[in-house]
Computed example of a mutant assay.
Amino acid sequence: MIKIVRVRLAKPLLKLSFLGALLAFSTPAAAWWEYGHETVARIALEEASPAARAEVRRMLRQGALLDTPTCPIATVGQAAEWADCVRAMGDRFSYTAPWHYQNVNVCRPFDQSSACANGNCVSAQVERNFRLLKDRALPRRERLQALLFLIHFAGDLHQPLHAGDRGDLGGNRFRAYYSRIQSNLHAIWDGYLAERSISTPPADAHGLLSAFGRDERRGMAQGSVEDWARESWEVSRRFAYGGVLADPCGEVLSEPPVISQEQIRDLIPVVRTQITRGGLRLARLLDEALG
């Protein structure tokens, strides 16, 4: 059962025109825009142990080791987005493209292995980079990259359309309207809906955390990576596709569906919960690897 926390709405955010262009070209590897990834990372640092938090900050001061000056890691936001930023560097990091998602069909029984050949999926890379980060015998540069990938992929795993789809590239081929804005399902969950949800008061990392008590947070951090993937897959089926189709596996009509303001209000707590889950679970992984 998906836990839903009801929150008070803010007025819709005004969008700059260039954000519309970003939505039009959204791909399965550009999850949650910068805001979502940064919020997951900030929740994780808030909830991690003091020892793990201090180690993360110490490692982030070693950005020169990466030799990626166009993709700095001087801030938490930059660190959370590094894995997307370096993809623009061409051959050097192009092999990481399939690590950001796993297109597990929501209309069939959950089968993570079907989308994780040779470890090329987000779940496998969360586990792999956790192991690398934990291995203190590895070179500093390799562990630093593992930290940055882990921060980013923990966020990706909790974007439902990175965990489950209908054979439509994570909803990129599913046309839909966000109120009056024509886009696609993936871009709506990555961008407009994510930004609206995180910025709804109480906003940002502290605001999202305030909706859950200490025992609730501890419970949300439990489980395996596969458990988290199955949960995100179910959110994709039930809310991403089920939010625009009476049957999430039913026929897609030629006319793009419209996600109304009323539906948006219902989806906001779902997205806020997913972001919070991602941050709490990342905090647990950081504690186990660095604490």
Score class of each variant (00 low, 15 high):
91 D>E: 07
286 L>W: 00
84 D>M: 12
5 V>P: 05
213 G>N: 10
15 K>F: 10
191 G>A: 13
204 D>R: 14
105 N>M: 10
146 A>Y: 00
209 L>K: 05
201 P>L: 05
243 G>Q: 02
168 D>M: 07
42 R>I: 07
76 V>K: 00
159 Q>E: 11
99 W>N: 12
185 L>V: 04
74 A>V: 00
183 S>V: 04
56 V>A: 00
272 R>C: 01
102 Q>F: 09
224 S>A: 06
197 S>D: 04
67 D>R: 15
104 V>W: 00
115 A>F: 02
267 L>F: 03
83 A>P: 05
101 Y>W: 08
120 N>Q: 12
136 R>Q: 07
220 M>S: 04
28 P>A: 07
193 L>F: 03
19 L>H: 14
9 L>E: 13
67 D>Q: 15
57 R>Y: 06
267 L>S: 02
178 Y>W: 15
56 V>M: 01
193 L>R: 01
90 G>R: 11
163 A>R: 03
238 R>Q: 11
13 L>W: 11
221 A>D: 04
175 R>F: 04
219 G>D: 08
50 P>N: 09
116 C>A: 12
170 G>F: 05
192 Y>S: 13
291 G>C: 04
146 A>P: 02
230 R>F: 04
86 V>S: 02
24 A>Y: 07
247 D>K: 10
193 L>I: 05
9 L>C: 10
17 S>N: 13
244 V>C: 05
274 Q>D: 09
258 V>T: 13
105 N>A: 12
18 F>I: 15
30 A>K: 08
116 C>Q: 08
97 A>K: 10
110 F>D: 02
52 A>R: 00
239 F>G: 03
224 S>Y: 07
8 R>I: 09
228 W>Q: 08
34 E>C: 10
37 H>W: 04
143 R>E: 01
65 L>T: 02
70 T>R: 15
100 H>V: 04
